[in-house]
Design a protein around this nucleic acid. Structure first.
Lengths: 154, 154
DNA sequence: TAACACCCTGTAGTAACTTCAGGGTCAAGT
DNA sequence: ACTTGACCCTGAAGTTACTACAGGGTGTTA
Protein backbone atom coordinates (compact mmCIF):
# COMPACT_ATOMS: atom_id res chain seq x y z
CA UNK A 1 0.00 0.00 0.00
CA UNK A 2 1.46 3.29 -1.10
CA UNK A 3 1.38 6.64 0.55
CA UNK A 4 -1.86 8.51 0.98
CA UNK A 5 -2.38 12.19 1.67
CA UNK A 6 -5.11 14.08 3.35
CA UNK A 7 -6.34 17.17 1.66
CA UNK A 8 -4.04 19.65 3.40
CA UNK A 9 -0.92 17.79 2.43
CA UNK A 10 -2.19 17.35 -1.10
CA UNK A 11 -2.76 21.08 -1.25
CA UNK A 12 0.77 21.85 -0.07
CA UNK A 13 2.36 19.44 -2.49
CA UNK A 14 0.31 20.46 -5.51
CA UNK A 15 0.14 24.19 -4.84
CA UNK A 16 -3.65 24.13 -5.13
CA UNK A 17 -5.49 25.50 -2.08
CA UNK A 18 -7.64 23.09 -0.07
CA UNK A 19 -10.93 24.77 -0.97
CA UNK A 20 -9.99 24.70 -4.61
CA UNK A 21 -9.32 20.97 -4.44
CA UNK A 22 -12.82 20.42 -3.09
CA UNK A 23 -14.16 22.78 -5.72
CA UNK A 24 -12.42 20.81 -8.46
CA UNK A 25 -14.08 17.69 -7.12
CA UNK A 26 -17.51 19.24 -7.59
CA UNK A 27 -16.48 20.17 -11.14
CA UNK A 28 -15.44 16.55 -11.70
CA UNK A 29 -11.95 17.57 -12.68
CA UNK A 30 -10.65 15.10 -10.14
CA UNK A 31 -12.42 11.92 -9.03
CA UNK A 32 -13.94 11.61 -5.58
CA UNK A 33 -11.30 10.06 -3.39
CA UNK A 34 -12.03 7.34 -0.83
CA UNK A 35 -12.72 8.53 2.70
CA UNK A 36 -11.11 7.61 5.98
CA UNK A 37 -13.31 6.28 8.78
CA UNK A 38 -13.44 9.84 10.10
CA UNK A 39 -14.80 10.94 6.70
CA UNK A 40 -11.58 12.61 5.60
CA UNK A 41 -10.68 12.55 1.91
CA UNK A 42 -7.69 10.28 1.36
CA UNK A 43 -5.69 10.90 -1.79
CA UNK A 44 -3.09 8.83 -3.60
CA UNK A 45 -0.14 9.69 -5.81
CA UNK A 46 -2.31 9.71 -8.90
CA UNK A 47 -4.50 12.46 -7.49
CA UNK A 48 -1.44 14.52 -6.75
CA UNK A 49 -0.21 14.18 -10.30
CA UNK A 50 -3.56 15.05 -11.79
CA UNK A 51 -3.84 18.11 -9.61
CA UNK A 52 -0.33 19.25 -10.48
CA UNK A 53 -1.22 18.88 -14.13
CA UNK A 54 -4.30 21.03 -13.66
CA UNK A 55 -2.42 23.63 -11.73
CA UNK A 56 0.22 23.80 -14.41
CA UNK A 57 -2.45 24.38 -17.03
CA UNK A 58 -4.09 27.06 -14.91
CA UNK A 59 -0.76 28.79 -14.40
CA UNK A 60 -0.66 29.04 -18.18
CA UNK A 61 -4.05 30.77 -17.98
CA UNK A 62 -6.00 27.99 -19.59
CA UNK A 63 -9.67 27.92 -18.68
CA UNK A 64 -11.21 24.92 -16.96
CA UNK A 65 -13.02 24.10 -20.18
CA UNK A 66 -9.73 24.07 -22.05
CA UNK A 67 -8.23 21.76 -19.47
CA UNK A 68 -11.03 19.21 -19.63
CA UNK A 69 -10.14 17.81 -23.06
CA UNK A 70 -6.50 17.66 -22.07
CA UNK A 71 -7.42 15.55 -19.08
CA UNK A 72 -9.53 13.30 -21.27
CA UNK A 73 -6.61 12.58 -23.54
CA UNK A 74 -4.36 12.16 -20.55
CA UNK A 75 -6.75 9.53 -19.23
CA UNK A 76 -6.57 7.35 -22.31
CA UNK A 77 -2.90 6.99 -23.21
CA UNK A 78 -3.56 5.17 -26.48
CA UNK A 79 -5.75 7.89 -27.95
CA UNK A 80 -4.06 10.31 -30.26
CA UNK A 81 -3.28 13.74 -28.98
CA UNK A 82 -4.26 15.97 -31.88
CA UNK A 83 -6.94 17.53 -29.71
CA UNK A 84 -4.25 18.55 -27.28
CA UNK A 85 -2.44 20.34 -30.03
CA UNK A 86 -5.65 22.04 -31.11
CA UNK A 87 -6.46 23.26 -27.62
CA UNK A 88 -2.97 24.60 -27.21
CA UNK A 89 -2.96 26.34 -30.56
CA UNK A 90 -6.23 28.00 -29.82
CA UNK A 91 -5.07 29.04 -26.41
CA UNK A 92 -1.88 30.51 -27.83
CA UNK A 93 -4.04 32.50 -30.16
CA UNK A 94 -6.18 33.78 -27.28
CA UNK A 95 -3.09 34.92 -25.49
CA UNK A 96 -1.72 36.58 -28.59
CA UNK A 97 -4.92 38.46 -29.16
CA UNK A 98 -5.15 39.63 -25.61
CA UNK A 99 -1.52 40.70 -25.79
CA UNK A 100 -2.13 42.82 -28.86
CA UNK A 101 -5.18 44.35 -27.24
CA UNK A 102 -3.26 45.27 -24.12
CA UNK A 103 -0.49 46.83 -26.15
CA UNK A 104 -2.97 49.00 -27.97
CA UNK A 105 -4.54 49.87 -24.64
CA UNK A 106 -1.28 50.88 -23.10
CA UNK A 107 -0.48 53.22 -25.96
CA UNK A 108 -3.87 54.85 -25.58
CA UNK A 109 -3.48 55.23 -21.85
CA UNK A 110 -0.04 56.79 -22.17
CA UNK A 111 -1.33 59.23 -24.77
CA UNK A 112 -4.18 60.14 -22.45
CA UNK A 113 -1.82 60.59 -19.53
CA UNK A 114 0.19 63.10 -21.58
CA UNK A 115 -2.81 65.38 -21.62
CA UNK A 116 -2.59 66.35 -17.98
CA UNK A 117 0.82 66.71 -16.40
CA UNK A 118 -0.05 69.18 -13.69
CA UNK A 119 -2.91 69.08 -11.24
CA UNK A 120 -5.31 71.46 -12.89
CA UNK A 121 -8.93 72.21 -12.24
CA UNK A 122 -11.13 69.27 -13.11
CA UNK A 123 -12.86 71.27 -15.78
CA UNK A 124 -9.57 71.82 -17.60
CA UNK A 125 -8.04 68.40 -17.05
CA UNK A 126 -6.98 67.05 -20.40
CA UNK A 127 -7.59 63.52 -19.26
CA UNK A 128 -11.22 64.08 -18.39
CA UNK A 129 -11.89 65.91 -21.61
CA UNK A 130 -10.03 63.19 -23.47
CA UNK A 131 -12.28 60.57 -21.93
CA UNK A 132 -15.41 62.44 -22.84
CA UNK A 133 -15.20 62.57 -26.60
CA UNK A 134 -14.73 60.25 -29.52
CA UNK A 135 -15.36 56.61 -28.80
CA UNK A 136 -12.51 54.54 -30.22
CA UNK A 137 -14.52 51.76 -31.94
CA UNK A 138 -17.50 53.16 -33.90
CA UNK A 139 -19.65 50.66 -32.08
CA UNK A 140 -22.68 49.06 -33.61
CA UNK A 141 -23.56 47.61 -30.27
CA UNK A 142 -22.02 46.46 -27.02
CA UNK A 143 -18.31 46.46 -27.64
CA UNK A 144 -18.24 46.65 -23.88
CA UNK A 145 -19.61 43.12 -23.83
CA UNK A 146 -16.24 41.60 -24.60
CA UNK A 147 -14.78 41.17 -21.15
CA UNK A 148 -14.65 37.82 -19.42
CA UNK A 149 -11.31 37.03 -17.91
CA UNK A 150 -7.64 37.25 -18.54
CA UNK A 151 -7.51 35.84 -22.01
CA UNK A 152 -10.88 34.16 -22.65
CA UNK A 153 -13.18 36.66 -24.13
CA UNK A 154 -14.98 36.86 -27.35
CA UNK B 1 -37.12 71.58 -23.69
CA UNK B 2 -34.26 69.60 -25.19
CA UNK B 3 -34.24 66.15 -26.67
CA UNK B 4 -34.88 63.12 -24.52
CA UNK B 5 -34.07 59.51 -25.24
CA UNK B 6 -35.58 56.30 -24.09
CA UNK B 7 -33.23 53.61 -23.00
CA UNK B 8 -32.89 51.85 -26.35
CA UNK B 9 -31.85 54.99 -28.16
CA UNK B 10 -29.46 55.90 -25.35
CA UNK B 11 -27.94 52.44 -25.68
CA UNK B 12 -27.46 52.82 -29.42
CA UNK B 13 -25.90 56.25 -29.10
CA UNK B 14 -23.59 55.42 -26.23
CA UNK B 15 -22.63 51.90 -27.26
CA UNK B 16 -23.66 50.53 -23.87
CA UNK B 17 -26.26 47.72 -24.00
CA UNK B 18 -29.67 48.42 -22.51
CA UNK B 19 -29.31 45.92 -19.67
CA UNK B 20 -25.95 47.39 -18.78
CA UNK B 21 -27.45 50.87 -18.57
CA UNK B 22 -29.98 49.57 -16.06
CA UNK B 23 -27.21 47.76 -14.25
CA UNK B 24 -25.15 50.95 -14.01
CA UNK B 25 -28.15 52.66 -12.49
CA UNK B 26 -28.25 50.10 -9.68
CA UNK B 27 -24.52 50.70 -9.16
CA UNK B 28 -25.22 54.43 -8.96
CA UNK B 29 -22.81 55.17 -11.76
CA UNK B 30 -25.58 57.14 -13.45
CA UNK B 31 -28.45 58.91 -11.68
CA UNK B 32 -32.00 57.59 -11.87
CA UNK B 33 -33.64 59.35 -14.78
CA UNK B 34 -37.20 60.69 -14.69
CA UNK B 35 -39.89 58.35 -15.98
CA UNK B 36 -42.54 58.82 -18.62
CA UNK B 37 -46.17 58.32 -17.67
CA UNK B 38 -45.82 54.77 -19.01
CA UNK B 39 -42.93 54.26 -16.56
CA UNK B 40 -40.22 54.38 -19.23
CA UNK B 41 -36.85 55.86 -18.31
CA UNK B 42 -36.36 59.18 -20.10
CA UNK B 43 -32.79 60.33 -20.53
CA UNK B 44 -31.28 63.70 -21.43
CA UNK B 45 -28.08 64.73 -23.15
CA UNK B 46 -26.17 64.76 -19.90
CA UNK B 47 -26.91 61.09 -19.30
CA UNK B 48 -25.65 60.28 -22.74
CA UNK B 49 -22.39 62.09 -22.11
CA UNK B 50 -21.88 60.44 -18.76
CA UNK B 51 -22.50 57.02 -20.23
CA UNK B 52 -20.12 57.67 -23.12
CA UNK B 53 -17.49 58.68 -20.60
CA UNK B 54 -17.99 55.44 -18.68
CA UNK B 55 -17.90 53.38 -21.79
CA UNK B 56 -14.69 55.01 -22.90
CA UNK B 57 -13.11 54.20 -19.54
CA UNK B 58 -14.33 50.60 -19.73
CA UNK B 59 -12.94 50.26 -23.23
CA UNK B 60 -9.60 51.16 -21.66
CA UNK B 61 -10.17 48.24 -19.27
CA UNK B 62 -10.62 50.37 -16.18
CA UNK B 63 -12.63 48.73 -13.44
CA UNK B 64 -15.84 50.25 -12.18
CA UNK B 65 -14.07 51.16 -8.97
CA UNK B 66 -11.42 53.01 -10.94
CA UNK B 67 -14.08 54.90 -12.84
CA UNK B 68 -15.95 56.09 -9.74
CA UNK B 69 -13.35 58.63 -8.62
CA UNK B 70 -13.04 59.92 -12.17
CA UNK B 71 -16.77 60.55 -12.24
CA UNK B 72 -16.57 62.30 -8.90
CA UNK B 73 -13.98 64.74 -10.20
CA UNK B 74 -15.95 65.13 -13.38
CA UNK B 75 -18.96 66.12 -11.31
CA UNK B 76 -17.23 68.99 -9.53
CA UNK B 77 -15.41 71.00 -12.19
CA UNK B 78 -13.63 73.23 -9.70
CA UNK B 79 -11.96 70.39 -7.78
CA UNK B 80 -8.41 69.60 -8.76
CA UNK B 81 -7.78 66.54 -10.82
CA UNK B 82 -4.72 65.02 -9.20
CA UNK B 83 -6.78 61.98 -8.26
CA UNK B 84 -7.51 61.46 -11.93
CA UNK B 85 -3.81 61.38 -12.65
CA UNK B 86 -3.26 58.93 -9.80
CA UNK B 87 -5.96 56.56 -11.01
CA UNK B 88 -4.58 56.64 -14.50
CA UNK B 89 -1.00 56.06 -13.40
CA UNK B 90 -2.03 53.09 -11.34
CA UNK B 91 -4.09 51.70 -14.15
CA UNK B 92 -1.23 52.06 -16.58
CA UNK B 93 0.88 50.10 -14.17
CA UNK B 94 -1.74 47.34 -13.97
CA UNK B 95 -1.79 47.08 -17.70
CA UNK B 96 2.00 47.00 -17.87
CA UNK B 97 2.17 44.18 -15.35
CA UNK B 98 -0.43 42.13 -17.10
CA UNK B 99 1.36 42.70 -20.37
CA UNK B 100 4.62 41.37 -18.99
CA UNK B 101 2.83 38.36 -17.55
CA UNK B 102 1.18 37.54 -20.84
CA UNK B 103 4.47 37.81 -22.68
CA UNK B 104 6.06 35.33 -20.30
CA UNK B 105 3.03 33.11 -20.75
CA UNK B 106 3.21 33.16 -24.48
CA UNK B 107 6.85 32.15 -24.48
CA UNK B 108 6.04 29.22 -22.24
CA UNK B 109 3.13 28.13 -24.38
CA UNK B 110 5.18 28.28 -27.57
CA UNK B 111 7.92 26.24 -25.96
CA UNK B 112 5.35 23.68 -24.88
CA UNK B 113 3.80 23.58 -28.31
CA UNK B 114 7.23 22.71 -29.77
CA UNK B 115 7.17 19.47 -27.87
CA UNK B 116 4.51 17.85 -30.00
CA UNK B 117 4.47 18.57 -33.70
CA UNK B 118 2.81 15.40 -34.90
CA UNK B 119 -0.27 13.69 -33.63
CA UNK B 120 1.26 10.99 -31.51
CA UNK B 121 -0.20 8.65 -28.95
CA UNK B 122 -1.34 10.52 -25.87
CA UNK B 123 1.16 8.65 -23.76
CA UNK B 124 4.02 10.00 -25.86
CA UNK B 125 2.70 13.51 -26.41
CA UNK B 126 5.39 15.93 -25.40
CA UNK B 127 2.82 18.50 -24.42
CA UNK B 128 1.08 16.27 -21.94
CA UNK B 129 4.34 15.16 -20.40
CA UNK B 130 5.47 18.77 -20.34
CA UNK B 131 2.38 19.74 -18.43
CA UNK B 132 2.86 17.02 -15.89
CA UNK B 133 6.22 17.93 -14.38
CA UNK B 134 7.98 20.86 -12.82
CA UNK B 135 5.71 23.59 -11.59
CA UNK B 136 7.03 26.97 -12.75
CA UNK B 137 6.73 28.99 -9.51
CA UNK B 138 7.95 27.01 -6.45
CA UNK B 139 4.67 27.89 -4.83
CA UNK B 140 4.36 28.48 -1.15
CA UNK B 141 0.60 28.59 -1.54
CA UNK B 142 -2.13 29.51 -3.97
CA UNK B 143 -0.28 31.15 -6.82
CA UNK B 144 -3.42 30.13 -8.64
CA UNK B 145 -5.29 32.68 -6.56
CA UNK B 146 -4.09 35.56 -8.70
CA UNK B 147 -6.75 35.67 -11.36
CA UNK B 148 -9.49 38.25 -11.39
CA UNK B 149 -10.00 39.87 -14.71
CA UNK B 150 -8.13 41.37 -17.61
CA UNK B 151 -5.75 43.59 -15.74
CA UNK B 152 -7.00 43.83 -12.18
CA UNK B 153 -5.42 41.10 -10.21
CA UNK B 154 -3.11 41.05 -7.31
C1' DT C 1 -10.25 16.58 29.49
C1' DA C 2 -8.79 20.52 27.05
C1' DA C 3 -6.39 22.73 23.48
C1' DC C 4 -5.21 22.80 18.85
C1' DA C 5 -4.62 21.73 14.09
C1' DC C 6 -6.97 19.74 10.84
C1' DC C 7 -11.15 18.15 8.37
C1' DC C 8 -16.36 18.32 6.94
C1' DT C 9 -20.75 20.55 4.46
C1' DG C 10 -23.28 24.17 2.66
C1' DT C 11 -23.98 28.87 1.50
C1' DA C 12 -22.81 33.35 -0.03
C1' DG C 13 -19.75 36.71 -1.99
C1' DT C 14 -16.60 38.48 -5.91
C1' DA C 15 -16.67 41.48 -11.09
C1' DA C 16 -19.25 42.98 -14.54
C1' DC C 17 -22.33 41.72 -16.72
C1' DT C 18 -25.88 38.52 -19.54
C1' DT C 19 -29.97 35.93 -19.79
C1' DC C 20 -34.47 34.71 -18.58
C1' DA C 21 -39.28 34.63 -17.10
C1' DG C 22 -43.34 36.97 -16.99
C1' DG C 23 -45.22 40.73 -17.73
C1' DG C 24 -46.76 46.20 -19.33
C1' DT C 25 -46.78 50.30 -23.25
C1' DC C 26 -47.49 52.30 -27.52
C1' DA C 27 -47.92 53.15 -32.42
C1' DA C 28 -49.52 51.22 -36.66
C1' DG C 29 -52.42 48.17 -39.34
C1' DT C 30 -57.04 45.61 -40.15
C1' DA D 1 -61.98 47.41 -31.34
C1' DC D 2 -58.34 44.40 -31.80
C1' DT D 3 -54.03 42.56 -32.82
C1' DT D 4 -49.31 42.60 -34.08
C1' DG D 5 -44.71 44.02 -33.14
C1' DA D 6 -41.21 46.77 -31.22
C1' DC D 7 -40.06 48.51 -27.24
C1' DC D 8 -40.01 48.84 -22.15
C1' DC D 9 -40.43 47.08 -17.03
C1' DT D 10 -38.80 44.17 -12.66
C1' DG D 11 -36.56 40.61 -10.26
C1' DA D 12 -33.98 36.56 -10.12
C1' DA D 13 -30.58 33.48 -11.71
C1' DG D 14 -26.48 32.28 -14.53
C1' DT D 15 -21.51 33.16 -15.85
C1' DT D 16 -15.95 32.13 -14.22
C1' DA D 17 -12.98 30.36 -10.96
C1' DC D 18 -12.66 30.67 -7.01
C1' DT D 19 -12.60 32.65 -1.78
C1' DA D 20 -14.59 33.15 2.66
C1' DC D 21 -17.53 32.11 6.15
C1' DA D 22 -20.46 29.72 9.68
C1' DG D 23 -21.13 25.98 12.35
C1' DG D 24 -19.74 21.87 13.24
C1' DG D 25 -16.75 16.97 13.64
C1' DT D 26 -11.82 14.42 14.16
C1' DG D 27 -7.46 13.28 16.00
C1' DT D 28 -3.29 14.04 18.45
C1' DT D 29 -0.89 15.81 22.20
C1' DA D 30 -0.35 17.65 27.18
Amino acid sequence: MSKTYQIGELARLSGVPVETVRYYETLKLIPKPPRSQGNYRMYAQEHLERLSFIRHCRSLDMSIDEIRPLLRVRDRPDADCSEVNAVLDEHIEHVGERLAELQRLKRQLLALRQRCQSASRGADCGILTGLSGAQPPPVGRGAAAHRKDGVHRK
